[in-house]
């Protein structure tokens, strides 16, 4: 904004150039990552139209030969080939990680909003909401998953209509667990944001004859949910990583597959570095996405202009 009033200095132009190079690299990496994932998934769904199901998109041998021919990279050729080799399994695991995270987050949101509203504006329901939130936040997520899976044996109760969606019913148990747990955390973030909506907004809503619930729906939530986006993004990011706990109830998501391959090959370092980078790419995507959403729904004239 300020730069419009005076010419940019050389230092600023260099900084701008640096930023655009960094940005370009990030976008390229993102495109490569998501391109690999989506093509892998589509290839699997369509029964191996590009490469046979379970085979890497590019032959591991070709990657190894190419790298071996390059002077500086020859030392990494066999490692790279190994990573390419396991890439179909990683892509497959990442699919479940993405699905579990996304579905749990969205379902959790629809529980979290009423929880937060009850907490801020309810009387008796405020105590119920508080109890739920403290119980779910105060006990280990893994213990909650164990109760649902081993204790209640929920996987055997998955309705027929849902049981065909994933190869294993236990995915639904994981989604339920993350939904219930995530809702408690999301509710806390949303509660904080609702409390930051000015009291005068509610008074004004009531003064034109809106009921309390209508005022919350038409006035408070549209503002509060916007304010909640930055902190809510935390829950998104956490959930991506927490979803790895599903491995402990045998959901074959990213961590589960990595662990399985590692215990067969004993190449723990390499496998978990690659797995970590995959999680990192998901997390960066999530936070970039939410920054975009935040910018898109920002109220004109309010708040800071974000630097992308």
């Amino acid at each position: 904004m300020a730069s419009a009033t005076r010419p940019a200095t050389v230092r600023e132009r260099v900084a701008d150039a640096d930023r655009s190079v960094g940005r370009l690299l990030l976008v390229a990496a993102g495109a490569l990552f998501w391109g690999w994932l989506v093509v892998s998934w589509v290839n699997r769904w369509l029964g191996g139209v590009l490469v046979p199901v379970g085979q890497p998109l590019v032959p591991a041998g070709a990657v190894e030969a190419t790298l071996a021919a390059l002077p500086g990279l020859a030392a990494y050729a066999s490692d790279a080939a190994f990573v390419v080799e396991l890439s179909p399994d990683l892509a497959r695991g990442t699919w479940l990680t993405v699905v579990i995270t996304a579905v749990s987050l969205v379902l959790g949101f629809f529980i979290a909003v009423p929880l937060a509203v009850a907490r801020v504006y309810g009387r008796f329901s405020s105590w119920l909401s508080l109890g739920y939130t403290e119980l779910l936040r105060g006990t280990p997520l893994l213990a909650q998953l164990f109760v649902l899976y081993y204790g209640l044996n929920l996987a055997s109760y998955v309705p027929g209509a849902l049981s065909g969606v994933f190869p294993r019913n236990v995915v639904w148990v994981a989604i339920l667990g993350f939904t219930l747990n995530g809702a408690a955390y999301q509710a806390e973030y949303i509660r904080g944001a609702l409390e930051s909506v000015e009291e005068g907004q509610i008074t004004a809503g009531r003064a034109i004859g809106l009921s309390k619930l209508e005022t919350i729906y038409y006035v408070v939530l549209p503002q509060g949910l916007r304010y909640a986006i930055p902190s809510w993004t935390n829950e998104f990011v956490y959930l991506i990583k927490y979803s790895s706990l599903a491995a402990f109830i045998t959901v074959p998501e990213l961590y589960y597959r990595a662990d399985q391959i590692a215990s067969e090959t004993f190449r723990y370092t390499l496998i978990f570095v690659v797995t970590g980078v995959t999680y990192l790419a998901l997390v960066l995507t999530a936070s970039k996405l939410m920054a975009r959403v935040e910018g898109a729904v920002a109220i004109p004239g309010l708040g800071v202009e974000r630097e992308e």
Binding site: E198, G200, Q201, V219, P222, Q223, I299, L302
Partner: peptide, 8 residues
């Protein structure tokens, strides 16, 4: 006094 317009 404080207008209390709906900010969004």
């Amino acid at each position: 006094q404080g207008f209390n317009l709906f900010a969004h």
